[in-house]
Write a protein that binds this DNA or RNA. Structure first.
Ligand code: ZN
Ligand code: ZN
Ligand code: ZN
Ligand code: ZN
Lengths: 158, 158
DNA sequence: ATATGATTTGTTATGTTATAACATTCACTA
DNA sequence: TAGTGAATGTTATAACATAACAAATCATAT
Protein backbone atom coordinates (compact mmCIF):
# COMPACT_ATOMS: atom_id res chain seq x y z
CA UNK A 1 0.00 0.00 0.00
CA UNK A 2 1.24 3.41 -0.95
CA UNK A 3 0.72 5.62 2.08
CA UNK A 4 2.15 8.69 0.48
CA UNK A 5 -0.36 8.74 -2.31
CA UNK A 6 -3.23 7.84 -0.03
CA UNK A 7 -2.38 10.68 2.29
CA UNK A 8 -2.59 13.16 -0.53
CA UNK A 9 -6.10 12.50 -1.69
CA UNK A 10 -9.28 10.52 -1.17
CA UNK A 11 -8.04 7.51 -3.00
CA UNK A 12 -11.22 5.55 -2.51
CA UNK A 13 -13.30 7.99 -4.46
CA UNK A 14 -10.58 8.52 -7.04
CA UNK A 15 -10.49 4.79 -7.66
CA UNK A 16 -14.24 4.52 -7.99
CA UNK A 17 -14.38 7.43 -10.38
CA UNK A 18 -11.89 5.81 -12.75
CA UNK A 19 -13.71 2.48 -12.58
CA UNK A 20 -16.97 4.20 -13.45
CA UNK A 21 -15.24 5.96 -16.32
CA UNK A 22 -13.94 2.63 -17.60
CA UNK A 23 -17.39 1.08 -17.46
CA UNK A 24 -18.94 4.04 -19.23
CA UNK A 25 -16.21 4.06 -21.87
CA UNK A 26 -16.65 0.36 -22.64
CA UNK A 27 -20.40 0.64 -22.78
CA UNK A 28 -20.18 3.55 -25.15
CA UNK A 29 -17.69 1.75 -27.40
CA UNK A 30 -19.52 -1.59 -27.20
CA UNK A 31 -16.49 -3.17 -25.54
CA UNK A 32 -16.74 -5.63 -22.70
CA UNK A 33 -15.22 -4.91 -19.33
CA UNK A 34 -15.38 -8.58 -18.40
CA UNK A 35 -14.77 -9.91 -14.87
CA UNK A 36 -11.08 -10.65 -15.51
CA UNK A 37 -10.51 -7.24 -17.04
CA UNK A 38 -12.36 -5.49 -14.25
CA UNK A 39 -10.41 -7.46 -11.64
CA UNK A 40 -7.10 -6.42 -13.19
CA UNK A 41 -8.06 -2.77 -13.39
CA UNK A 42 -9.36 -2.88 -9.86
CA UNK A 43 -6.12 -4.39 -8.61
CA UNK A 44 -4.06 -1.66 -10.26
CA UNK A 45 -6.37 1.05 -8.98
CA UNK A 46 -6.17 -0.35 -5.46
CA UNK A 47 -2.40 -0.55 -5.42
CA UNK A 48 -1.98 2.88 -6.94
CA UNK A 49 1.44 1.81 -8.12
CA UNK A 50 3.06 -0.22 -10.85
CA UNK A 51 2.67 -4.00 -10.75
CA UNK A 52 4.38 -6.69 -12.77
CA UNK A 53 2.29 -9.02 -14.92
CA UNK A 54 3.04 -11.93 -12.62
CA UNK A 55 1.91 -9.98 -9.56
CA UNK A 56 -1.34 -9.31 -11.41
CA UNK A 57 -1.52 -12.98 -12.23
CA UNK A 58 -1.10 -13.93 -8.59
CA UNK A 59 -3.90 -11.52 -7.70
CA UNK A 60 -6.13 -13.19 -10.27
CA UNK A 61 -5.30 -16.60 -8.86
CA UNK A 62 -6.26 -15.44 -5.36
CA UNK A 63 -9.49 -14.03 -6.73
CA UNK A 64 -10.36 -17.40 -8.23
CA UNK A 65 -9.59 -16.73 -11.86
CA UNK A 66 -7.49 -18.86 -14.13
CA UNK A 67 -3.89 -17.90 -13.55
CA UNK A 68 -1.95 -18.71 -16.67
CA UNK A 69 0.17 -15.87 -18.07
CA UNK A 70 -1.93 -15.22 -21.19
CA UNK A 71 -4.92 -14.39 -19.00
CA UNK A 72 -3.09 -11.53 -17.34
CA UNK A 73 -1.41 -10.27 -20.49
CA UNK A 74 -4.66 -10.28 -22.44
CA UNK A 75 -6.44 -8.26 -19.80
CA UNK A 76 -3.51 -5.85 -19.51
CA UNK A 77 -3.37 -5.36 -23.25
CA UNK A 78 -7.08 -4.72 -23.44
CA UNK A 79 -6.81 -2.09 -20.73
CA UNK A 80 -3.78 -0.54 -22.39
CA UNK A 81 -5.60 -0.38 -25.71
CA UNK A 82 -8.45 1.59 -24.19
CA UNK A 83 -6.03 3.86 -22.32
CA UNK A 84 -6.81 2.93 -18.72
CA UNK A 85 -3.49 1.23 -18.11
CA UNK A 86 0.03 2.21 -19.13
CA UNK A 87 3.17 0.12 -19.27
CA UNK A 88 6.32 1.43 -17.62
CA UNK A 89 8.94 0.19 -20.05
CA UNK A 90 11.91 0.63 -17.76
CA UNK A 91 10.27 -1.55 -15.10
CA UNK A 92 8.32 -4.02 -17.22
CA UNK A 93 5.35 -3.16 -15.10
CA UNK A 94 1.85 -1.79 -15.44
CA UNK A 95 0.03 1.10 -13.82
CA UNK A 96 -3.51 2.44 -13.89
CA UNK A 97 -4.12 5.79 -15.53
CA UNK A 98 -6.04 8.26 -13.41
CA UNK A 99 -6.96 10.62 -16.19
CA UNK A 100 -7.84 8.37 -19.07
CA UNK A 101 -10.48 10.79 -20.28
CA UNK A 102 -8.17 13.29 -21.86
CA UNK A 103 -6.17 12.14 -24.85
CA UNK A 104 -2.65 12.37 -23.55
CA UNK A 105 0.92 11.16 -23.77
CA UNK A 106 1.89 9.99 -20.31
CA UNK A 107 5.16 11.08 -18.76
CA UNK A 108 6.37 9.06 -15.80
CA UNK A 109 8.60 10.22 -12.98
CA UNK A 110 9.93 7.09 -11.28
CA UNK A 111 11.52 7.50 -7.86
CA UNK A 112 14.31 4.97 -7.33
CA UNK A 113 14.20 5.52 -3.60
CA UNK A 114 10.53 5.10 -2.64
CA UNK A 115 9.34 3.44 -5.88
CA UNK A 116 6.61 6.00 -6.22
CA UNK A 117 5.54 6.73 -9.78
CA UNK A 118 3.97 10.04 -10.75
CA UNK A 119 2.14 10.36 -14.04
CA UNK A 120 2.38 13.74 -15.66
CA UNK A 121 0.97 14.33 -19.05
CA UNK A 122 1.82 16.40 -22.05
CA UNK A 123 -0.27 17.74 -24.83
CA UNK A 124 0.40 15.56 -27.85
CA UNK A 125 1.38 17.42 -31.00
CA UNK A 126 2.66 20.38 -29.06
CA UNK A 127 5.58 18.89 -27.16
CA UNK A 128 9.09 19.34 -28.42
CA UNK A 129 9.60 15.70 -29.35
CA UNK A 130 6.59 15.60 -31.57
CA UNK A 131 7.92 18.77 -33.15
CA UNK A 132 11.37 17.24 -33.51
CA UNK A 133 9.79 14.20 -35.17
CA UNK A 134 7.68 16.38 -37.47
CA UNK A 135 10.78 18.18 -38.64
CA UNK A 136 12.29 14.96 -39.91
CA UNK A 137 9.01 13.75 -41.36
CA UNK A 138 8.62 11.00 -38.77
CA UNK A 139 5.04 10.10 -37.89
CA UNK A 140 4.71 9.14 -34.24
CA UNK A 141 2.23 6.49 -33.19
CA UNK A 142 3.46 5.97 -29.66
CA UNK A 143 5.60 7.95 -27.24
CA UNK A 144 7.51 6.55 -24.27
CA UNK A 145 8.63 9.24 -21.87
CA UNK A 146 10.04 8.05 -18.58
CA UNK A 147 12.38 9.71 -16.10
CA UNK A 148 14.12 7.84 -13.33
CA UNK A 149 15.44 9.73 -10.35
CA UNK A 150 14.59 10.88 -6.87
CA UNK A 151 11.34 12.53 -5.84
CA UNK A 152 11.06 15.66 -3.74
CA UNK A 153 10.03 13.81 -0.59
CA UNK A 154 12.99 11.44 -0.81
CA UNK A 155 15.42 14.27 -1.56
CA UNK A 156 14.22 15.99 1.59
CA UNK A 157 14.91 12.89 3.66
CA UNK A 158 18.47 12.39 2.52
CA UNK B 1 23.15 -4.71 -42.80
CA UNK B 2 21.42 -1.38 -42.94
CA UNK B 3 21.75 -0.12 -46.49
CA UNK B 4 19.87 3.06 -45.89
CA UNK B 5 22.28 4.32 -43.27
CA UNK B 6 25.32 3.20 -45.18
CA UNK B 7 24.18 5.06 -48.22
CA UNK B 8 23.98 8.28 -46.28
CA UNK B 9 27.51 8.46 -44.98
CA UNK B 10 30.93 6.89 -44.92
CA UNK B 11 30.04 4.41 -42.29
CA UNK B 12 33.45 2.85 -42.18
CA UNK B 13 35.11 6.03 -41.03
CA UNK B 14 32.24 6.90 -38.70
CA UNK B 15 32.63 3.55 -37.03
CA UNK B 16 36.37 3.91 -36.63
CA UNK B 17 36.02 7.37 -35.19
CA UNK B 18 33.69 6.19 -32.45
CA UNK B 19 35.91 3.23 -31.63
CA UNK B 20 38.90 5.56 -31.31
CA UNK B 21 36.84 7.83 -29.09
CA UNK B 22 35.94 4.88 -26.87
CA UNK B 23 39.57 3.86 -26.56
CA UNK B 24 40.62 7.40 -25.73
CA UNK B 25 37.82 7.79 -23.21
CA UNK B 26 38.70 4.57 -21.40
CA UNK B 27 42.39 5.41 -21.35
CA UNK B 28 41.69 8.82 -19.92
CA UNK B 29 39.37 7.43 -17.24
CA UNK B 30 41.62 4.45 -16.47
CA UNK B 31 38.92 2.06 -17.57
CA UNK B 32 39.63 -1.06 -19.57
CA UNK B 33 38.14 -1.57 -23.01
CA UNK B 34 38.85 -5.30 -22.86
CA UNK B 35 38.54 -7.67 -25.85
CA UNK B 36 34.97 -8.69 -24.99
CA UNK B 37 33.89 -5.11 -24.53
CA UNK B 38 35.58 -4.01 -27.72
CA UNK B 39 34.03 -6.91 -29.62
CA UNK B 40 30.55 -5.94 -28.42
CA UNK B 41 31.00 -2.28 -29.30
CA UNK B 42 32.44 -3.23 -32.67
CA UNK B 43 29.49 -5.48 -33.41
CA UNK B 44 27.01 -2.71 -32.62
CA UNK B 45 28.99 -0.19 -34.65
CA UNK B 46 29.10 -2.57 -37.60
CA UNK B 47 25.41 -3.31 -37.55
CA UNK B 48 24.46 0.31 -37.12
CA UNK B 49 21.18 -0.85 -35.68
CA UNK B 50 19.76 -2.21 -32.45
CA UNK B 51 20.67 -5.77 -31.45
CA UNK B 52 19.24 -7.97 -28.73
CA UNK B 53 21.55 -9.23 -25.99
CA UNK B 54 21.31 -12.76 -27.32
CA UNK B 55 22.28 -11.66 -30.81
CA UNK B 56 25.32 -10.01 -29.28
CA UNK B 57 25.98 -13.20 -27.42
CA UNK B 58 25.84 -15.23 -30.62
CA UNK B 59 28.31 -12.83 -32.18
CA UNK B 60 30.65 -13.35 -29.24
CA UNK B 61 30.35 -17.09 -29.59
CA UNK B 62 31.26 -16.88 -33.27
CA UNK B 63 34.22 -14.69 -32.38
CA UNK B 64 35.46 -17.34 -29.97
CA UNK B 65 34.47 -15.73 -26.69
CA UNK B 66 32.60 -17.38 -23.88
CA UNK B 67 28.95 -17.17 -24.71
CA UNK B 68 27.01 -17.29 -21.48
CA UNK B 69 24.47 -14.49 -20.97
CA UNK B 70 26.35 -12.66 -18.20
CA UNK B 71 29.27 -12.09 -20.54
CA UNK B 72 27.12 -10.11 -22.96
CA UNK B 73 25.18 -8.27 -20.29
CA UNK B 74 28.31 -7.23 -18.44
CA UNK B 75 29.89 -5.83 -21.55
CA UNK B 76 26.68 -4.06 -22.55
CA UNK B 77 26.31 -2.53 -19.11
CA UNK B 78 29.90 -1.33 -19.11
CA UNK B 79 29.38 0.32 -22.51
CA UNK B 80 26.10 1.85 -21.37
CA UNK B 81 27.76 3.23 -18.24
CA UNK B 82 30.37 5.04 -20.28
CA UNK B 83 27.77 6.30 -22.73
CA UNK B 84 28.80 4.48 -25.90
CA UNK B 85 25.76 2.22 -25.96
CA UNK B 86 22.11 2.94 -25.27
CA UNK B 87 19.29 0.56 -24.51
CA UNK B 88 16.06 0.86 -26.47
CA UNK B 89 13.56 0.02 -23.76
CA UNK B 90 10.64 -0.66 -26.04
CA UNK B 91 12.64 -3.25 -27.99
CA UNK B 92 14.83 -4.69 -25.23
CA UNK B 93 17.74 -4.08 -27.51
CA UNK B 94 20.99 -2.17 -27.61
CA UNK B 95 22.46 0.33 -30.02
CA UNK B 96 25.78 2.14 -30.36
CA UNK B 97 25.88 5.86 -29.77
CA UNK B 98 27.53 7.85 -32.53
CA UNK B 99 28.01 11.04 -30.59
CA UNK B 100 29.08 9.88 -27.15
CA UNK B 101 31.32 12.87 -26.68
CA UNK B 102 28.64 15.40 -25.95
CA UNK B 103 26.68 14.90 -22.75
CA UNK B 104 23.22 14.23 -24.07
CA UNK B 105 19.86 12.64 -23.48
CA UNK B 106 19.18 10.40 -26.41
CA UNK B 107 15.84 10.49 -28.17
CA UNK B 108 15.02 7.56 -30.39
CA UNK B 109 12.73 7.51 -33.39
CA UNK B 110 11.89 3.87 -34.10
CA UNK B 111 10.37 3.05 -37.47
CA UNK B 112 7.99 0.11 -37.23
CA UNK B 113 8.13 -0.43 -40.95
CA UNK B 114 11.85 -0.56 -41.80
CA UNK B 115 13.16 -1.06 -38.25
CA UNK B 116 15.49 1.86 -38.67
CA UNK B 117 16.34 3.73 -35.49
CA UNK B 118 17.40 7.36 -35.53
CA UNK B 119 19.07 8.87 -32.52
CA UNK B 120 18.32 12.48 -31.95
CA UNK B 121 19.54 14.24 -28.90
CA UNK B 122 18.34 16.94 -26.62
CA UNK B 123 20.18 19.28 -24.36
CA UNK B 124 19.75 17.97 -20.86
CA UNK B 125 18.44 20.47 -18.33
CA UNK B 126 16.82 22.55 -21.02
CA UNK B 127 14.18 20.22 -22.34
CA UNK B 128 10.61 20.51 -21.21
CA UNK B 129 10.61 17.24 -19.29
CA UNK B 130 13.54 18.22 -17.18
CA UNK B 131 11.75 21.48 -16.55
CA UNK B 132 8.54 19.64 -15.70
CA UNK B 133 10.49 17.47 -13.27
CA UNK B 134 12.24 20.47 -11.74
CA UNK B 135 8.90 22.09 -11.06
CA UNK B 136 7.83 19.20 -8.90
CA UNK B 137 11.23 18.92 -7.23
CA UNK B 138 12.07 15.66 -8.94
CA UNK B 139 15.75 15.05 -9.63
CA UNK B 140 16.28 13.14 -12.86
CA UNK B 141 19.15 10.70 -13.17
CA UNK B 142 18.04 9.03 -16.37
CA UNK B 143 15.67 9.89 -19.18
CA UNK B 144 14.05 7.43 -21.57
CA UNK B 145 12.60 9.15 -24.61
CA UNK B 146 11.43 6.88 -27.40
CA UNK B 147 8.97 7.39 -30.21
CA UNK B 148 7.60 4.56 -32.30
CA UNK B 149 6.10 5.30 -35.66
CA UNK B 150 6.87 5.53 -39.35
CA UNK B 151 9.88 7.27 -40.86
CA UNK B 152 9.76 9.67 -43.76
CA UNK B 153 11.14 7.16 -46.27
CA UNK B 154 8.55 4.56 -45.35
CA UNK B 155 5.73 7.10 -45.40
CA UNK B 156 6.75 8.00 -48.94
CA UNK B 157 6.58 4.36 -50.02
CA UNK B 158 3.09 3.67 -48.74
C1' DA C 1 -34.99 -21.33 -31.38
C1' DT C 2 -31.08 -22.10 -33.44
C1' DA C 3 -27.34 -21.99 -36.68
C1' DT C 4 -23.47 -19.14 -37.38
C1' DG C 5 -19.49 -16.43 -36.65
C1' DA C 6 -16.88 -13.54 -33.60
C1' DT C 7 -14.96 -12.69 -29.17
C1' DT C 8 -13.29 -14.21 -24.88
C1' DT C 9 -11.29 -17.49 -21.89
C1' DG C 10 -8.77 -21.79 -20.67
C1' DT C 11 -4.62 -24.42 -21.11
C1' DT C 12 -0.17 -26.30 -22.46
C1' DA C 13 4.00 -25.40 -23.98
C1' DT C 14 7.71 -22.63 -25.16
C1' DG C 15 10.34 -18.50 -26.26
C1' DT C 16 12.84 -14.41 -24.71
C1' DT C 17 15.24 -11.39 -21.60
C1' DA C 18 18.04 -10.87 -17.48
C1' DT C 19 20.39 -11.82 -13.01
C1' DA C 20 22.25 -14.44 -8.76
C1' DA C 21 26.00 -16.73 -7.03
C1' DC C 22 30.33 -18.43 -6.91
C1' DA C 23 34.80 -20.07 -9.00
C1' DT C 24 38.76 -18.71 -11.67
C1' DT C 25 41.93 -15.79 -13.97
C1' DC C 26 44.26 -11.48 -14.71
C1' DA C 27 46.60 -7.02 -13.82
C1' DC C 28 48.60 -4.19 -10.73
C1' DT C 29 51.24 -2.98 -6.84
C1' DA C 30 53.20 -3.24 -1.98
C1' DT D 1 56.05 -12.66 -4.91
C1' DA D 2 52.12 -12.27 -2.13
C1' DG D 3 48.01 -9.66 -1.88
C1' DT D 4 44.25 -6.97 -3.77
C1' DG D 5 40.55 -5.69 -6.78
C1' DA D 6 38.70 -6.09 -11.42
C1' DA D 7 37.20 -8.94 -15.04
C1' DT D 8 35.72 -13.24 -16.86
C1' DG D 9 33.95 -18.03 -16.83
C1' DT D 10 30.23 -21.00 -15.58
C1' DT D 11 26.01 -23.02 -13.76
C1' DA D 12 21.68 -22.33 -12.60
C1' DT D 13 17.50 -19.91 -12.29
C1' DA D 14 14.46 -15.87 -12.27
C1' DA D 15 11.46 -12.78 -14.67
C1' DC D 16 8.90 -11.42 -18.63
C1' DA D 17 6.08 -12.62 -22.69
C1' DT D 18 3.77 -15.11 -26.59
C1' DA D 19 2.31 -19.08 -29.88
C1' DA D 20 -1.07 -22.22 -30.73
C1' DC D 21 -5.15 -24.45 -30.21
C1' DA D 22 -9.38 -26.00 -27.61
C1' DA D 23 -13.57 -24.75 -25.17
C1' DA D 24 -16.99 -21.62 -23.72
C1' DT D 25 -19.65 -17.50 -24.31
C1' DC D 26 -22.01 -13.93 -26.75
C1' DA D 27 -24.32 -11.46 -30.63
C1' DT D 28 -27.40 -11.60 -34.19
C1' DA D 29 -29.67 -12.91 -38.28
C1' DT D 30 -32.47 -16.07 -40.33
ZN1 ZN E 1 -2.45 8.24 -18.44
ZN1 ZN F 1 10.76 8.97 -3.56
ZN1 ZN G 1 23.79 8.79 -27.68
ZN1 ZN H 1 11.05 3.35 -41.99
Amino acid sequence: MNLKKNSLHDHNSCRQKVMEAAKAYCEQKRLKLTPVREAVLNMLLNEHQALGAYEILEGLRVAGFSAQPPVAYRALNFLRDIGFVHKIEQLNSYIACYHPDMSHSPVFLICQSCNDITEKSIDRHKDEFSIMADETGFQITNLVLEAKGTCQACLANL
